[in-house]
Amino acid sequence: MSVTELGPIEITAAVLREAGAPLRLERATLGAPRPDEVRVRIVATGVCHTDMVVRDQLFPTPMPIVLGHEGAGVVEAVGASVTTIEPGDHVVMTYMSCGLCLPCETGHPAHCSHMHPLNFGGSRLDGSTSTCGCEDNTPIHDHFFGQSSFSTYVVANERNVVKVPKSAPLELLGPLGCGIQTGAGSVLKAMKVEAGASFVAFGAGAVGLAAVMAAKVAGATTIIAVDVTPSRLALALELGATHVINSREEDPVQRVREITSGGANYSLECSGRAQVLRQAIDAITTLGTCGIVGATKMGTEAAFNINDVMIPGKRIMGIVQGDVVANAFIPTLVNLYLQGRFPFDKLCRFYSFDQVNEAMADSESGVTIKPILRMPVSADQA
């Protein structure tokens, strides 16, 4: 079916209209895809910490806006210039990049020069949107991470849509597009943790636990998870951690140094807390690497001992989306999952779409590590 024949459609989207306010399910109109875009019927979408960061405007975006950036669904229509995706394909959506800047051209699209406007600007790069309110026909900001998947249907770009096998459980796969990819990619692609290395994740949420699983895949022989929630630490042991540290009960830096006889080869700061970043830096050994993935309020600064970084040759690395090329990396994670080597499903709990605010609250309170919203199924899709 052609894009022209399909035309605009009516959708249901969870809309943020005020900073910190609950999201509201609203009827809206979604325009047809442009030549380089696709329209996707969302099956399920993950809820990520970044959704809450933007809801509270710690990362400012224009409003009203449709959030959601871990969507998985079925392609319904493709633009005239799309060549890699066809109607009927099962896809996971990920971050958006321009494809033309130096980072993109050199294999680092997650560090695209246009990362902020493409993913947090609330529109395409030219300022246009696809979504309008049904009642007043006023534009609603969308294209959050190139998708805005807190919606029953989305328009995304061919660049940020990744085809996945139909044999994989589609409703489970959305988190691979951001949170899970970030943790696993940081270990396997950005820091390149090697077999026999020691690794510590500061924070055992979705990103940290994905990193723990990836460190096991990489062959790290000492894998440490640091958190304050006993249930998450227990799960970390189940997923591959060799040691866990409750930082409310003991000094994590001192304990990491004891476990590793001087410091870890690699650490990953996943909490978004400046004081924890200092711990992650202090916990690594000579020539060790500390990766930073935890999202913080804009303008947040951190302190560390310069000589304790310079003299032992420590490296501090900022990482976005695991520094992965998603079209290659997400299928790898799917294959690892299907082989039983990357059981990220143990982090997940499903919610209905109308429970979006409950899912966010459960994520923030720690009740659920990775909430996934299931979209309603109409009679012709059942």
Rank of each mutant, 00 (worst) to 15 (best):
G196M: 01
T12V: 13
L233M: 15
V320I: 15
C98E: 07
L118E: 10
A201F: 02
G73N: 06
E258R: 13
T61C: 11
C101A: 05
V161M: 02
G203M: 08
D308Y: 07
A204Q: 08
C48A: 09
D362H: 14
A32F: 02
A379I: 14
G185W: 03
D251V: 03
T61N: 03
M1R: 15
K346W: 00
A156T: 14
A283F: 00
A215G: 06
V309M: 03
C178K: 06
L268V: 13
T222E: 04
S151D: 09
D345M: 08
V200A: 13
M298I: 13
V253M: 05
G88A: 00
S267C: 02
P8A: 08
D354K: 11
E301Y: 07
T229H: 15
K189W: 00
A359C: 08
E171N: 15
L30S: 11
I259A: 04
D136R: 13
A326R: 08
F344C: 12
A326M: 04
F353P: 07
A303C: 07
G73V: 09
P117V: 09
G322V: 11
G99D: 08
Q147Y: 06
T260P: 00
E194V: 15
E5I: 11
I281N: 14
P175S: 09
G88K: 05
L16M: 02
A225C: 05
I9K: 10
Y351L: 03
R374P: 04
R34T: 07
I11K: 09
H108P: 01
G121T: 12
V356L: 07
N305R: 15
A295P: 00
C178Y: 02
V78R: 01
Q339Y: 03
L209I: 09
Q355G: 04
T94A: 01
G263E: 07
I245Q: 06
K166E: 13
T83I: 04
Q321L: 09
Q275R: 14
S231L: 10
V244K: 04
S81C: 00
Q57N: 04
G88E: 05
A44K: 08
L25D: 10
I281A: 13
G7T: 06
Q339T: 09
A204E: 09
E18F: 00
V66H: 08
Y266V: 14
R278P: 05
L336T: 06
V309Y: 05
I316Y: 02
T138C: 06
H143T: 11
H108Y: 15
L100C: 10
V92N: 03
H243W: 04
N327L: 04
P64L: 06
A234I: 11
G299V: 00
V228Y: 07
T12N: 09
L102T: 15
A72T: 08
L237P: 00
G288L: 03
V43W: 10
F342N: 07
R124C: 05
Q339P: 10
R315C: 07
A13N: 09
S363H: 13
T106S: 13
K370F: 05
L176D: 08
V3F: 01
I85D: 01
T29M: 02
T45Y: 04
M310K: 14
H243F: 03
